[in-house]
């Protein structure tokens, strides 16, 4: 089962290596890992999708919290949250097929960002299943290239935290 974990980490060299190394050393499977800045220049946010059962998720969370440069860890296990993945995909599109594909683009509220004679690059963002659905639909045309950011996630308004644990460090 996939779980989304969000970790606020100190924006310092070696943090990514530390987190990635911990995952590798303990045999956890990472489905995706996204690192980006936050509103505070001293902190970055890592959004990690891990595969495993609840017990694995709990261990991942606790082990993440033990990494000295990890400030805060949150899993979205029981939380109502928004997740987004973004993709750039270059699809094989001959001029005759353009209207068809553009219709799909429209329907998915995606964007054609580059068109040349035999291909079209589409930008699409949304929850993972939407992205997957789009890929399925354009696959018959032929996919030249595809790049995805991986999931970022954030809890919906009101209570600031999901099952947040802060600094359970030893």
């Amino acid at each position: 089962m996939k779980h989304v974990i969000s970790a606020i980490v100190e924006n310092q060299p070696g943090v990514l290596a530390h987190v990635a190394g911990m995952f590798a050393a303990r045999g956890y499977n990472i489905d995706s890992l996204v690192v980006g800045r936050t509103e505070d220049p001293a902190l970055s946010r890592m959004t990690i999708v891990v595969i495993g059962d609840e017990q694995v998720l709990e261990q991942v969370r606790k082990q993440l919290e033990k990494v000295i440069n990890v400030v805060r860890v949150r899993d979205f296990m029981d939380a109502d949250y928004i997740q987004r993945d973004m993709m750039l995909i270059r699809v094989h599109v001959t001029p005759e097929k353009r209207p068809e594909v553009l219709a799909l683009v429209e329907m998915f509220r995606a964007k054609a960002v580059d068109i040349c004679r035999n291909s079209m690059m589409v930008e699409i963002a949304g929850p993972e299943d939407k992205i997957e659905a789009f890929i399925d639909l354009v696959r018959p045309y032929g996919i030249h290239e595809l790049a995805r950011t991986g999931i970022i996630a954030m809890q919906r308004g009101k209570s600031k935290t999901g099952s947040e644990t802060q600094n359970g460090k030893a």
Binding site: V9, E10, V67, I68, N69, V70, V71, R72, Q166, N167, G168, K169, A170
Partner: peptide
């Protein structure tokens, strides 16, 4: 200042 380290 070790925001990520508050040992129990």
């Amino acid at each position: 200042s070790l925001p990520g380290y508050k040992p129990r």
